[in-house]
């Protein structure tokens, strides 16, 4: 593999008032790939995004963007990155269109070019009809789309999306996913954080799972699912006898009791569970595909954060 490395972190560390937020992580992001940062709240994802974007200087370690150290090359780095932050920081005093043209000035984009680009982007995120509406009157989904459009004003090589679909309805989520996919096709490198495992599985070529400031797993989403959760998961209603039977049938399987249910994970190939279900009937038995959420919960636990 001699793909071009766009972002490289070595021993990257960040402390806030003695509190360790990012604890010496290493990763490489290649040009043109979509890279996801997953982890519970407080895992250090957003802090890592802010360091990549050059607004939060690392406490220790190395972080380079396109070969440039983030310390001392702030302007160059920021001009090649587009950021769609987690929180809405659109300008409430301006209309949709002005939000784009005023923001374009910060990138030194000439007035006429900025107007043209703003029109294009409004078309891209399907907000042309809201062009002259004040931000306050937009729905959450529209604001998200506008934030993404704003992040694209400077035609960035790297697009940072910090929880791009949190709090949106399924329609808005799918629209945003489609837009992200079309940007991926254009060759934009996408760096994404999310709490939604389906989103990561849909959009990311590779992911990192972080917890307590450290990277605990990394790889391609499907590989991680295979590795940690197998192909299929069997869910059934918990009882002592069922548990005993399961332990006899699947000796090496990992079993997890969640509420009144048992989840059975096995490395057996597809079909092992259905054979067993044909032989005897169980209450509430469901066989489903293993997914990234299984991996995430296995690695980070079910304990609530924050």
């Amino acid at each position: 593999m001699n793909r071009e490395i766009l972002v490289e972190a070595e021993g990257l560390k960040k402390t806030f008032d003695g509190l360790l937020a990012v604890d010496g992580i290493n990763f490489k992001i290649f040009k043109g790939e979509s890279f996801g940062f997953l982890g519970p709240n407080g895992a250090g994802k957003t802090t890592t995004m802010k360091m990549i974007n050059g607004v939060s200087p690392p406490t220790a370690g190395n972080l380079t963007i396109a070969g440039m150290d983030v310390c001392g090359n702030g302007r160059e780095i920021k001009s090649m990155i587009g950021v769609a932050p987690q929180e809405d920081n659109l300008d409430p005093d301006f209309t949709v269109f002005q939000n784009l043209t005023v923001y374009a000035r910060y990138f030194n984009i000439p007035k006429e070019a900025a107007k043209k680009r703003a029109e294009q982007l409004l078309r891209f995120v399907q907000l042309e009809e809201k062009r002259d509406v004040i931000i306050t009157y937009l729905s959450a989904g529209m604001k998200r789309r506008l934030i993404i459009a704003r992040a694209l004003l400077n035609e960035p090589q790297i697009l940072i999306l910090d929880e791009p679909t949190t709090g949106l309805d399924p329609q808005a989520r799918h629209l945003i996913w489609n837009k992200i996919r079309s940007l991926q096709k254009e060759g934009v490198t996408v760096i994404l954080t999310t709490h939604y495992m389906d989103e990561a599985a849909q959009l990311c070529d590779r992911i990192i799972i972080m917890d307590h400031g450290k990277i605990i797993e990394e790889g391609k989403p499907m590989d991680l699912v295979r590795k940690h959760a197998g192909e299929e998961v069997l869910e059934l209603v918990y009882s002592e006898e069922v548990m005993k039977l399961l332990k006899q049938t699947f000796r090496n399987a990992r079993m997890e009791v969640v509420g009144d249910k048992i989840h059975v994970f096995t490395s057996h190939p597809r079909g092992a569970f259905s054979k067993m279900l044909k032989a005897a009937s169980f209450r509430g038995a469901v066989i489903r595909d293993a997914n990234l959420e299984d991996v995430f919960l296995k690695l980070t636990g079910r304990r609530l954060r924050e």
Partner: peptide
């Protein structure tokens, strides 16, 4: 409240 400064410092303006 508006996080306007956060939005601006994500651009080449420091």
């Amino acid at each position: 409240f508006q996080k306007t400064f956060d939005a601006i410092i994500a651009t080449p303006v420091n």
